[in-house]
């Protein structure tokens, strides 16, 4: 890679520790613009922590993160975030449309309430994920897959250039899985960069063009066909994995 080429995300020497225990150790990661990158690794490998560190949600012990050459604080308008579905209480008293409009809160800034424009954007996003029939549905009455699509719609209205998604494929139905894949491809076609924490090794080659193998340290990262090798996987999972192919 030439040094002049821009990087959508650039992580250097990132170390994160909870109390004394390192959860991420000296991570380097360059993500070129326009790729779909999946982060894979065993439980406790620090996948979620890495995403949160990129977003500035956890304070690193050392290291640096840049989004298009600037720190996250300066770039949050161009970054979209899809947290783990299980991280919120779905019994919260609100409906689908309201959750999706939360994606505009950052652009709205303090105190201003969502209006007609936000409503329209939310409706468009819901249509894209096939949830337009559920706008007034109370969120506790959604299936897991529908909840995931609501979160995706919320990220869509953020209209970001770089997306970070935490386990969007976790426990979803086939319809939702297809919807997510279609969305990812559309993102790529529009030159957006997407980083996805992923757990299903079988679909990595089909869905993504880049992969990062992570187990506290970075084992490898790069294009799937070069990086997603049995040797690298063995190193990541420590032989606790049966190989197909």
């Amino acid at each position: 890679m030439q040094p002049s080429e821009p990087k959508a995300i650039e992580v250097t020497d990132l170390t994160v520790a909870y109390q004394d225990k390192p959860v991420l150790w000296d991570i380097d990661l360059d993500v070129p613009p326009g790729v779909l990158l999946s982060i894979v690794g065993p439980n406790g490998a620090g996948k979620t922590t890495l995403i949160k560190a990129i977003l500035g949600l956890v304070r690193p012990a050392a290291g640096n993160v840049l989004i298009y050459d600037k720190p996250y604080d300066a770039q949050r308008r161009i970054v979209g975030y899809v947290p783990q579905r299980g991280s919120v209480d779905w019994d919260f008293p609100t409906n689908v449309l309201d959750v999706v409009m939360m994606g505009r809160y950052g652009a709205l800034g303090w105190v201003r309430r969502p209006g007609k424009k936000e409503h329209e954007l939310a409706m468009q996003a819901l249509e894209k994920v096939g949830m337009e029939a559920y706008t007034t549905r109370q969120i506790s009455q959604l299936s897991g897959g529908q909840q995931q699509r609501v979160f995706l719609a919320r990220a869509l209205v953020q209209d970001a250039t770089v997306y970070l998604m935490d386990e969007p494929f976790q426990g979803v139905d086939a319809t939702t899985e297809r919807a997510i894949v279609t969305l990812l491809q559309e993102f790529r076609a529009n030159g957006k960069t997407v980083v996805v924490v992923h757990h299903d090794l079988q679909t990595v080659t089909d869905y993504f063009d880049w992969v990062m193998l992570l187990n506290i340290r970075r084992i490898a990262s790069g294009p799937v066909d070069e990086t997603f090798t049995p040797d690298n996987l063995r190193e990541t999972y420590g032989g606790r994995i049966a190989f197909m192919k």
């Binding site: 947290p83 991280s87 919260f92």
Partner: peptide, 22 residues
């Protein structure tokens, strides 16, 4: 009432609220 939107987001999804700069 003034910070209605911000407090709602904080209670529903604190991580997301932080990610968009609140």
């Amino acid at each position: 009432l003034v910070f209605w939107k911000e407090l709602k987001l904080l209670v529903f999804d604190e991580g997301f609220a932080a990610s968009i700069g609140f």
